[in-house]
């Protein structure tokens, strides 16, 4: 019995790994203000004659974008992982992108369903609903593009431009705080105490390299590799960041626990106490709060820098 279910688990692991290894494509918009045509991630053309009035969002990042664009009243349903801002808890939930409650979605009579996962797309379209399926953004640029796209579709171009500029300036300010210091710290970003980290090909990985950090997890192909303990020790990170928060596992890993891991005492980050906890949804969610996330990381870098001597 144990052996059979393990084979099934292996398959599941491969599937979830496969799902996160998608290549992003740009979703472009064409057309004038009255009619917008969007190419979704399947290459299918989705037409918007008019801005949608009843939106269901199956992506927590885009729920946040909708709120920031002032579309709160047009959002009729969200997925169970959408947790920001607080008001969203009052919205009807329809399950999540993996296990969607189709009936609930249909019952809300939406004229647009936004999803970053292709699982429910066909089913919903067969029911005559309009679905916009866009890969999750792989980098900051991609997030800004998505914000612009949503602004275009919903006739909120100015608000979108506002949000984009705000985020860009947040990032610029954050980066400028790093000027004048040698910030090429080696960093280990821990998603999970099973030693899962972020690779180059991930959103977080992109932010880390944007800030000039040397990500230990960058050596492998997968976006979320499980890394060997000795690799961490050998590469001796100067900063350790622990991801906390619902989206990528709330295991309550503490700084204390990490410091006590056998064999880790020789690591520079531990010796200097440069271990930091970040709310995962700030920097691993490709949403409008990434500016805040970047600020947080810069805070860490500055703190680590001050502890250098």
């Amino acid at each position: 019995m144990g052996n059979l279910s393990t084979v099934l688990l292996v398959l599941m692991l491969m599937v979830t790994a496969g799902c996160s290894a998608q290549r992003p494509t740009d979703a472009g918009t064409t057309g004038n203000n009255s009619k917008i045509s969007v190419l979704d991630s399947r290459g299918k053309e989705i037409i918007f004659d008019s801005p949608p009035n009843r939106i269901v969002s199956l992506s927590p990042a885009h729920t946040e974008i909708f709120y920031m664009l002032g579309l709160e009243n047009y959002l009729v349903g969200v997925d169970s992982f959408s947790d920001f801002p607080d008001q969203v808890s009052k919205k009807p939930q329809v399950g999540d992108a993996f296990t969607l409650n189709i009936e609930a979605v249909v019952g809300l009579e939406p004229d647009l369903i936004y999803t970053t996962f292709d699982g429910p797309v066909e089913v919903l379209e067969e029911l005559g609903l309009r679905v916009l399926y866009i890969f999750p953004a792989k980098d900051v640029k991609g997030v800004l593009q998505n914000i612009k796209l949503l602004g275009d579709i919903t006739d909120r171009e100015y608000e979108a431009k506002d949000v984009i500029e705000r985020i860009e300036s947040q990032i610029e300010v954050a980066k400028s705080r790093l000027s004048g210091i040698e910030a090429e710290f080696r960093v280990y970003y821990e998603l999970d105490p099973g030693l899962y980290t972020v690779g180059d090909d991930s959103f977080v990985g992109d932010i880390l390299s944007m800030l000039g950090l040397e990500n230990i997890g960058a050596g492998s192909d997968s976006p979320y590799p499980k890394i060997s303990e000795e690799v961490i020790i050998f590469n001796d990170p100067e900063i350790i960041i622990l991801a906390d928060g619902r989206e990528f596992v709330a295991t309550g890993t503490t700084v204390g626990e990490v410091s006590k891991r056998p064999g880790w005492q020789s690591i520079t980050a531990i010796k200097r106490k440069s271990i930091y906890i970040v709310d995962g949804s700030l920097i691993s969610r490709p949403g409008p709060r990434i500016g805040l996330g970047v600020e947080k990381i810069v805070d860490f870098i500055l703190d680590a820098h001050s502890k250098q001597s």
Partner: peptide, 12 residues
Amino acid sequence: SPDMRPILNWLL
């Protein structure tokens, strides 16, 4: 769902 990884990790 998103917490699946640590469970899978442990189980495997």
